[in-house]
Structure formats: structure tokens, C-alpha cells
Design a protein around this nucleic acid. Structure first.
Length: 832
DNA sequence: GGAGGTGACGTACC
DNA sequence: ACCGGTACGTCACCTCC
């Protein structure tokens, strides 16, 4: 039988103590297919230099005799082959050791402690990664597969009769489809969401489960309410509801089952309840139950169906581009879909009225609907990530950036004939984490002020372009200086790199080139797949620099990172001098961007756009390799302020307005979620007015109005709420700030508190003693925290002196105005 | 008991 | 445990006078 096939999910299994992979996917016709393929289990032993043929033969014979016994099986070496390979760019002779079971590769490797073997490698890969590295079946690409259909033949112990697929096929040959292998595939998605009466897993019951698959809409419940809602289906009991949930997954037959935070919450909750109620959850295509692994960061895997937790993917790949202050379903859907959750006020379910129950069902369904739509929205990115990084959807949706970078490298090593480096072992990780920090990028101290006619230049893909241009990597670093090598002076130490391109810099250069290419293609043809592809390359490129300094990296090389930052400082400073030399005044620099006044300081001549582009071209002609400077935008005005303590200009804090009146605010309290809305909105208004109008007059008036409102207690209660994240368990805090005390207060009132939660509170007036003086406990701000429902008056003095004034003071200082004097003057005037 | 320094902490920038 | 360093600012907590 021959079919066209797209792989979606992988899982490994053993038969007769050997390794096989089940690859679940669809045919062109939409049939559910499961392929079975043999995994070639092997790893490498790198030989000592200069061994004789006889010595090599002797070692290989020794290796062939190795056997490893465990309780359930014996693994032995099938064969050994001698290969000419590369390791970290060096030519090596290596023995390919094929074994019966890859799971025992580490144990077999452990027995090869002969002195002729200098290194053992590729025994520490995940089984599926090891399989995919063979390059045979790339996730989410189309393949032409031929092979034998297992038709209750008893092959593999009759595995096919246990798999819920249209065909189970034993792979004969497989190759990439000659038709467009990268075209869009639309998976069948089913979203789910649960509502419970107690948030803590294991404590409460599941009240309802919603399912949403486009046309398919369902809320399952064992409660009696909701009779007049068509999508509500009543179950006899909670156990019955869980069984129906499984039944619907079976009949809907989705490729992707998706939830929001479902790894840590929904699926874990369902599993706990199922355990307690003694219900089986046979939703896997082999009728297995969901498997939940990991402790703090759990993941729930379903055999054959991709369980997708959208929260994780959003966290890793979107959060830095989102405005949302939290990654709650409500905020993320609001920003990505312009659609929100339904309003629903949670109460104990025993207190819900008929009407409120009906709302609850709609609320529950809407959550699944939003999750479904988010899944559709992120699908192009998921698919392209999967294709580009050669990773199954399950992993691509859960892994962090460093793992993405590493997997991209691993899956491209074959092109360089490279054997993969090992993962660091425990002691190494400890050492790496204890290493001294290396010096980072350059940040220029700005001179506070309001500037006009401002331009921003920035380096495109700064870090990767430096790494690629100067060949900075683990496999290219030299122990000593050679006659012709790249010398990097970090100011502290010198590092040397070979000029022969290494695989890491080369891959990076390729990534940058591809990114540029697809960005151009997208400009001409705005196809979401092309955009997703360009985006995937951008993300890998940006993370590659951090990867080399990351303690867990296989290709860890802090010297390369330190060299990259040293080179970055050199070029940004050189560019600074060139801009200055052109007569322009540079206001600010951070890492890869330079902000300057686009006019000659002496002659006051304003440069035209054309002259600016010409200048840019000139600067670019002097840059090496693939380093490139780009024009980010022209701005009408820009504002820089001093730090709160001292006279110097504050770094990482500025506001710009471009020629279309669009603001770009960085670092100011306006963009910080741990400041109250009152201060943030005021500061935003002040900045907007100043940048628009070029002076502070209206901004000052506005500030006075807000302060009057504050003093008159006319501020909306939601604008005084301060939100701070609880980053660790309460007991882990040495110094308990207001948010920690607020969290303690919540616990006392029976409100559940979790690590990672945004704690919301406000500051109330101090308690006074008999004489009317604030008591000494009140000095600590934490002792005055109030929760939203506390209904205590807010502390005017705190909000004035600790929120409002700090947010605007140094802005007005730029214009020589001491806000405090003015405010006090005003209040004195009023007093008299 | 107020001033001032320092460490812990959270968040932002690139 | 799940990419790096740089930087600002608040609050708690301590020492000092």
C-alpha cells in the first residue's frame, strides 16, 4: 500500500526488546494513519588519535562483547562500524555501536571504559529525538509511504488491533512527497475546559466540562440545572460525565486536544478525579490513559492525539511581543483574538441561582471556544516550528527557547558529519552555574532633556550576526593563539577562534539569511505560513546568543558569549563615534540601537530622509561580514529623564513620538505592571502631552487636576490597585514586601494563593493610636495592605508621595519645575 | 527615632 | 532547570548618631 502521510505525533515502544516508533498522522484523504518503523539504536565511541588498524579492530571486538542485563531484558551490541566523523569540527575516527535497545545506551556506554576510547556520544538523546535525527520522517511534512498494512496479522503481538486508526502500516519505504511538502495542513482541533468547586487539585469536584470543535459544542454536567440550554448535556454523575468526555473525544477524533493551562490544571484535575471515582480515561488512540509527567512544570501526553497546552506556547513564543500584563486566557484572547471571556462572578455553587447556572454554562463553553480559536490562531507558528526544528508538536509546544535552539542544531548536524556533544552532567551544571558573569553590552548614559528631530538606527540580528561573522562557538574556539586566527579582546581576557567556519555560526548565518528571505516573500505575499516561517527563524536566531551562555547547553561556550558582547561594545562605540563625527548628537545607546538628533550640532542643519539613508549606507559599507545597520524610524521628539536618586540620566527609560503621533515608551512606570493605574495613566498622559506639544504647560495642568481628584478621594478604586507577582512560596521570602503580606492576608481569608499569581492589593490609611498619631507598625507599608474587597479608605499620602509624584517628578524636572513645590504651593493657597 | 546605606525583590530593556 | 547581562526603583531591614 502507498499513501501520502503527514506525521503529527510520535511514540516509542519495544517489541522483542527492540525499539520501534509509532507515528500517528493523517493521509491526504484525512484518514487516521499509524506508521510503525524500526528505530536504529546506536551511539558513538570516539577513538584515541593514532591507533593502529589492529588496535582499532581489537577495541571493536571488545565492544561487540558487551551485554547489559536489567530486570526485564538483556541488551547487547549488534554490530560495530568504523566511520570517519567530525566532533566539534575536528576529524575523528569513531565506532558506530548498534545495540538492541536504545534505552540501555547509557548503560552500554558506561561499560566502554577502554583507554582507546576518548569519548562516548549520542547515548543521551531522547529516543524520539534519536529517531528523528535520522532525518527519515520530519514532523508536519508530507511523505510518500509504502509498506504493509497490519491487518490483524499478529505482527508486533497484534498491536494494530489495539490502535484506533484507519490503517496501521509497517513502513517499507518513506520519502518526502514531491508535491509541495510545506503546504498548509488544517488539523481537527477540539478544545476543552473544566469548572470546579475547589481550585486545589484533589480537593474538589468537577462541575462541568466544555468541549468546542467549531461546529461541535457541548457542556457536560452532572448538575440538574441548564435544562433549557441546547449545548448542555446532563450526566448521571461526575463519573458518568468523565466517561462521556472520553466518548466525545473518541467520536470527534481530533488531531489536537487543546486547553489553556491544561497541563497543570484541567488534565491533572480530570486525572485525579478519575482516580478517585475509579473511572478509566482511555482517550489515547491505543486506549491508554493520559500520562502526566514532571512536577512543577507538568505535561500531559495522550497517545496519538496531540495534547496542546496553549498557555505554554504563548509563554515561550509570544509573551515578549504581547502587551498583556498577565498571560491569562482573558487577556491573551483579548489581544490575539479581540474576544474576551464572558463575565461571571464566581460563588460557591450551592449559592448559584438558576439564571447564574445558565451563565456559568455559557461561560464554560466560551472558555473552550476561545481556546479553540487561539489554537487556530497559533497553528501556523506551531506547524512551522515543528517543521523547522524537526520536533513533534507535543514538544514544540512545550519546550523553551534553549531547547529549540539545541534541537535545531541536533537535527542539522548530519549535514556536517558531526557527532553530537553530550548534555552536561550534574557536577558540570553546578560548575557552570557558579561561573563568574561576563561583561554584557554597552548602555550609554543619556543626558536628560526633550529632544527634537530624533532618529533610531539599530543593528539587525545583532548577536547572531556577530556570532556568525566572527565565528564564535564551542567548536571554533582555540586553546591558544595561532598564526591566523580571530582574536577577540574582551578588555579582560583574549579569546581566539579559528577562521574556518564552524557549524554553529554557519547554521546561524543560514538562519539569518532565511529569515530575511521569508520576510521579503511575506512583504510581497502576506501568507501566514510564510510569516510563521520567518518568525521561527527570527526566534532561533535571537535565542542562539543566550544559548551559548546557558548552563544546560550541549554547546555551552561562555567565552563565545563574552566575545560576542566585547565585539558588540566595540562596534556600537565605533558607530557612536562615526555618528558624532558626522555632526549629529547621539542621545542614547542600548546594546544594538543608537538614538541621535538628526541635525548638525554646529550648523543646526536638519538632515533630510535621503541624506539619512545615504549616511546609513555609508556606515554599512564599513561593517564586516553579515553585520548590518538599519533605520528603525524617524521621531518628532524624544524625552529622557534623570534617575530618581541623583542627577544622571536614567538608562532604559525614554519616550519617543514618531511623525504619525505614535508613542514609543520604554522603561517608564507607564509600562510597568507593578505600579498602580493612577500613576501609570497620569504619567502616560503627561508624556503624551509633552511629546505632542513640545512643552510641559498642559501636562502640568493635567497633573494638578489628577492630584486634586486624589486628595478629594475621587479616584476610582480599580486605579489604586497595585499588582505584584508572587515569585516563590511565601515561606521562601527573606524580606517580605507588601505583596507577600497581601498574599498572607488572602490565605487567612481562605483565598487560594499560588506561586506565579499576580497579587492585587492597595495601601490603606495607617492605624492611629489614642493620640491620633499613626502607630509605629504602620510605618511598614506591608502592614497597611488592603485587599480589593476590604472597603477601607485608600491612603492619600501614600498614593501622592509613593506613586503619583515619583511617576511625574523627574519628567517635570527636565523643564526646571519642582513638582513638589507646586503641589504644596497649591494646597497652601487652598488652605488660606 | 530619623538619616542613610544595603540587600532582596520585581520588572523592564535589549 | 528549561536563553544572557544591564538597569531602575521600592521596600524591609540594619547601623549609626
Amino acid at each position: 500500500m502507498e499513501i501520502e502521510f503527514i506525521p503529527l505525533d510520535y511514540s516509542a515502544f519495544d517489541f522483542n526488546d527492540e525499539n520501534y516508533v509509532k507515528i500517528y498522522g493523517r493521509s491526504r484523504e484525512g484518514r487516521r494513519i499509524c506508521l510503525i518503523d524500526k528505530i536504529d539504536a546506536y551511539f558513538w565511541a570516539i577513538l584515541q588519535d593514532g591507533l593502529s588498524e589492529k588496535q582499532i579492530k581489537h577495541v571493536m571486538e571488545k565492544i561487540e562483547k558487551i551485554k547489559v542485563h536489567s530486570e526485564s531484558r538483556t541488551t547487547h551490541v549488534l554490530k560495530t562500524e568504523l566511520h570517519e566523523k567530525k566532533f566539534l569540527g575536528q576529524d575523528v575516527k569513531a565506532v558506530k555501536i548498534s545495540i538492541t535497545n536504545y534505552k540501555d545506551a547509557p548503560s552500554v556506554a558506561g561499560k566502554i571504559d577502554f583507554e582507546e576510547i576518548v569519548k562516548r556520544r549520542e547515548h543521551d538523546l531522547g529516543t524520539i529525538t534519536h529517531y528523528i535525527m535520522s532525518g527519515k520522517v520530519i514532523p508536519l511534512k508530507w511523505f510518500k509511504v509504502s509498506g504493509d498494512v497490519l491487518n490483524k496479522s499478529g505482527d508486533f503481538g497484534g498491536i494494530d488491533s489495539a490502535i484506533n486508526a484507519d490503517f496501521v502500516l509497517k513502513v517499507g519505504s518513506i520519502k518526502e512527497s514531491d508535491k509541495k511538502s510545506d503546504e498548509l495542513f488544517s488539523p481537527k482541533i477540539l478544545a476543552y475546559d473544566i469548572e470546579v468547586d475547589e481550585l486545589e487539585i484533589g480537593k474538589g469536584r468537577i462541575l462541568m466540562i466544555s468541549l468546542y470543535g467549531g461546529d461541535f459544542r457541548k457542556v457536560l454536567t452532572w448538575k440538574k440545572e441548564g435544562n433549557d440550554i441546547d449545548f448542555v448535556e446532563h450526566c448521571k454523575s461526575e463519573a458518568d460525565m468523565l466517561e462521556k468526555f472520553c466518548d466525545y473525544i473518541k467520536t470527534e477524533d481530533p488531531d489536537i486536544l487543546t486547553g489553556y493551562f491544561s497541563d497543570n490544571f484541567d488534565m491533572s484535575y480530570i486525572r485525579e478525579r478519575a482516580k478517585k471515582l475509579e473511572v478509566k480515561l482511555p482517550i489515547g488512540l491505543d486506549s491508554s490513559q493520559p500520562r502526566i509527567s514532571g512536577a512543577k512544570r507538568q505535561s500531559a501526553k495522550i497517545e496519538g492525539i496531540v495534547h496542546l497546552d496553549i498557555y505554554k506556547f504563548v509563554d515561550v513564543n509570544y509573551s515578549q511581543y504581547l502587551q498583556s500584563e498577565t498571560l491569562s486566557l482573558n487577556e491573551v484572547a483579548g489581544e490575539l483574538l479581540s474576544e474576551k471571556k464572558l463575565n461571571f462572578e464566581f460563588k460557591h455553587f450551592s449559592k448559584l441561582s438558576k439564571d447564574e447556572w445558565n451563565k456559568f454554562f455559557h461561560y464554560n463553553l466560551q472558555d473552550s471556544a476561545l481556546t479553540y480559536k487561539l489554537a487556530e490562531k497559533i497553528w501556523p507558528d506551531l506547524m512551522e516550528f515543528s517543521r523547522i526544528m524537526h520536533k513533534p508538536l507535543f514538544d514544540v509546544s512545550r519546550d523553551g527557547m534553549s531547547t529549540h535552539v539545541e534541537d535545531y542544531i541536533l537535527h542539522n548536524l548530519y549535514r556536517f558529519n558531526e557527532i553530537a556533544e553530550k548534555r552536561p552532567i550534574h557536577d558540570e551544571i553546578g560548575e557552570r552555574r557558579d561561573r563568574e558573569k561576563y561583561e554584557g553590552a554597552f548602555v550609554l548614559q543619556p543626558k536628560p532633556g526633550l529632544y527634537e528631530n530624533v532618529v533610531v538606527f539599530d543593528f539587525t540580528s545583532f548577536w547572531p550576526s556577530i556570532i556568525a561573522t566572527f565565528n564564535l562557538s564551542r567548536s571554533t574556539i582555540l586553546e591558544k593563539k595561532l598564526k591566523s586566527c580571530i582574536i577577540v579582546d574582551t578588555g579582560n581576557k583574549e579569546f581566539y577562534f579559528t577562521p574556518t567556519k564552524g557549524f554553529f555560526p554557519e547554521l546561524l548565518e543560514e538562519i539569518i539569511v532565511k529569515r530575511k528571505e521569508y520576510k521579503e516573500v511575506f512583504k510581497k505575499n502576506p501568507d501566514p505560513i510564510v510569516k510563521a516561517r520567518s518568525n521561527a527563524f527570527k526566534l532561533i536566531a535571537n535565542a542562539a546568543y543566550g544559548y551559548q551562555g546557558f548552563f544546560g547547553a550541549r554547546y555551552y561556550c561562555p567565552q563565545a558569549s563574552a566575545s560576542a558582547t566585547a565585539i558588540s561594545r566595540k562596534f556600537i562605540k565605533e558607530t557612536l563615534e562615526k555618528i558624532k563625527k558626522s555632526g549629529r548628537e547621539v542621545i542614547y545607546i542600548d546594546t544594538d540601537s543608537l538614538i541621535f538628533v538628526n541635525q548638525n550640532k554646529k550648523t543646526n542643519k536638519r538632515y533630510t530622509a535621503q541624506e539619512t539613508f545615504h549616511f546609513l549606507k555609508e556606515l554599512n559599507s564599513e561593517l564586516p561580514g553579515i553585520m548590518e545597520l538599519d533605520l528603525e524610524d524617524f521621531y518628532m521628539r524624544g524625552l529622557w529623564v534623570t534617575t530618581r536618586s541623583g542627577e544622571v540620566g536614567a538608562k532604559k527609560k525614554y519616550a519617543l513620538i514618531n511623525e504619525n503621533g505614535k508613542l514609543k515608551i520604554r522603561g517608564f512606570e507607564t509600562v510597568r505592571r507593578d505600579w498602580c493605574k493612577l500613576a501609570r495613566n497620569l504619567q502616560n498622559g503627561v508624556l503624551r502631552k509633552i511629546l505632542n506639544e513640545g512643552n510641559e504647560i498642559n501636562a502640568l495642568q493635567y497633573t494638578k487636576e489628577i492630584i486634586k481628584k486624589l486628595k478629594d478621594r475621587k479616584i476610582d478604586s480599580k486605579d489604586i490597585i497595585i499588582k505584584t507577582q508572587l515569585k516563590k512560596p511565601i515561606s521562601g521570602y527573606k524580606s517580605k514586601g507588601p505583596h507577600v503580606l497581601a498574599a498572607e492576608k488572602m490565605l487567612k481569608e481562605g483565598i487560594p494563593v499560588d506561586v506565579g499569581m499576580l497579587i492585587e492589593y492597595y495601601i490603606s490609611e495607617p492605624k492611629k493610636d489614642a493620640k491620633g498619631k499613626p502607630n509605629s507598625r504602620s510605618k511598614r507599608i506591608g502592614n497597611r495592605v488592603a485587599l480589593i474587597d476590604d472597603n477601607k479608605p485608600y491612603d492619600i499620602s501614600y498614593y501622592l508621595n509613593n506613586q503619583v509624584l515619583p511617576a511625574v517628578e523627574n519628567i517635570f524636572q527636565v523643564f526646571g519645575i519642582e513638582t513638589k513645590d507646586i503641589i504644596e504651593g497649591e494646597s497652601q493657597k487652598r488652605l488660606f
